[in-house]
Simulated assay, not measured.
Amino acid sequence: MSEVQWIYAPWKIKHKIFILIFLPFVFWLSWYSNGGNSWTSSLPFSCKLHYDHARRDGSYLDHLLEIRLPRMNYSQPETMNLLRTDVAVLTPWFAPIIWDGTFNIDILNHQFKQRDVRIGLVIFAIKKYVVFLQLFLETAETFFMVGYKVNYYILTDRPKDVPNVTLAEGRRVVVLKIPSHARWQDVCLNRMEIISVFTKQQFIHEVDYLVSADIDMRFSDHVGVEILSDTFGTLHPGFYRAKRQHFTFERRPASQAYIAVDEGDFYYAAGFYGGTVDEVYKLANQCHNGIMTDKANSIEAVWHEESHLNKYFLNHKPTKILSPEYLWDNGMGVPEVLRKRRFVAVPKNHAEIRN
C-alpha cells in the first residue's frame, strides 16, 4: 500500500462512521422540526398560541420585535414615595396586593395590548341563579376588561333563560349546558371538576386567561388587566383584617382541605379568582381531586370548593392578590381603606334562591 493510500484508508473509515451517525441525526432533526414533535412546553403561554403556525417560516420571531406605541405622559414613579401607607401592598413571597392607587392602568394597558390577550370569564348560572345574569353581563360590559376580547362562559342548566345582552366588539357569550344538582352544596363542589374539564376541552384553545366569578354580583367600578397574573386570589371581605386562627379553614385533619390553626397566609374567597389557562387548569384539577378523595371518605369540607381553594393557595402561593375592592358586600359598610368597590354582592334572600 502506498503512503497516500495508507493515509487515506483510515479517513475513509472515519468518513463512513461520520455518515452513519450524523445523517440519521439530520433526518431526525428535520422530522422533529416539521411536525413530528414540538418544543413548545417551555415557552410562555401567549407564545405557544402562535408558535406551531409560524415556526416553519421563521415568522414566529416577529413576535419578538418591538411594537411601536404612542408616547405616554405620566408622573415618574418615586422609589422613596410609598403608593399606599395604610395597607400592605406586597406579600412575603413578593406577590403584589392590588388596591386603588397601587397601579397605573394606562401603563398596564400598553403592556397587555401588545400581547393581544383574550380573557375568559366563567360564570355558573344554575337553577334560580340565572336571574342574576342580566345585571351581571350588563355591568361587566361597562366595567370588566373594557377594550379587550372577552368570552363570557356561561355554564347553566337553563340555556334558554340566558338573556340577550348587547356586547362590544370582540366580546361574546358562550353558553355551555351542564347538569344541575339537588343540593346547592353539590353545585359548589362540582364547579372545580367542570372548570377543569371545559378548560382542557375548550378554554385552552380560545383564551389566555380565565377568571371565575360568582354570578350573584355586579360590577360597579373598573376591573381590568391589573388583576391578571399566573394565578390570583381575592381577599375575603369578612377576613382581610383577621388573624389566621380565626379563618374558617377546614380544620379536620382527615380532609384534603385541612389547614392547621398555625398555618395560612390569607383567607381567599371563591367568588373571584383566576390566572392563565394553564394555571387555572392545575388549580381546578387538584381541588377536584381533593374533593373526590374527601367524598370517598364521606367528608365534605366546611366551605366546599372554597376550602379546597384555600388549601391550594397555601401550597401554591398566588402570584397576585386582589384586595376586597374586588369582592365586597355593601352590607358590611365602607371602611376607610376601601377607596373603590369594584365587584359587589347583589342583595338577595339566600334561602329562597337556593331552594
Rank of each mutant, 00 (worst) to 15 (best):
F249E: 03
K243I: 06
Q286P: 01
L283N: 00
A257Q: 06
N289H: 12
D278H: 13
P253I: 05
T234F: 07
G238M: 13
F249N: 11
G264Y: 14
R252V: 07
P237W: 09
K282T: 14
F272Q: 02
A260M: 12
I259Q: 00
E250H: 09
I259H: 02
A270V: 10
F249H: 12
A254S: 13
A260G: 13
R244G: 01
D265R: 13
N285S: 14
E263M: 15
A270K: 02
L283S: 02
I291A: 00
Y268K: 04
Y240W: 15
F239R: 12
G275T: 00
I259G: 03
N289G: 08
A260Y: 08
G238H: 12
A269G: 08
S255E: 02
A284I: 03
V261F: 13
S255C: 10
I259W: 04
M292W: 02
K295P: 07
G275N: 02
E263K: 15
L235H: 08
R252L: 12
P237K: 05
G274V: 10
V280Y: 09
D262P: 11
I291S: 03
P253K: 06
L283E: 01
H288R: 02
Y258E: 08
V280W: 10
D294Q: 01
Y273M: 09
A260N: 12
K282G: 08
L235M: 14
Y268I: 09
K295Q: 14
Q245S: 08
G290M: 02
Y273F: 15
C287I: 08
D278C: 12
I291W: 03
Q286Y: 06
Y273T: 09
D265S: 13
F247S: 06
A270L: 06
F249L: 05
F239H: 12
Q286M: 10
D265V: 01
G271W: 05
T276W: 05
Y267M: 04
H246S: 11
L235A: 10
R251I: 05
N285H: 14
D262H: 13
E250G: 04
C287F: 03
F239V: 10
T276D: 07
H236A: 11
Y258W: 14
E250Q: 15
A257D: 07
H236V: 05
G271E: 07
E279L: 13
D265K: 12
Y273R: 07
M292G: 00
D262A: 10
V280H: 09
D294H: 00
F272K: 00
E263T: 11
Y268N: 03
R251A: 08
G274N: 11
E250Y: 04
G264S: 15
V280K: 07
R251W: 05
G271I: 07
T248Y: 03
E250A: 05
D278E: 15
D262T: 12
D262R: 12
D294K: 00
V277F: 03
P253D: 04
G275V: 01
G274S: 11
Y273I: 05
Q286T: 11
G290I: 00
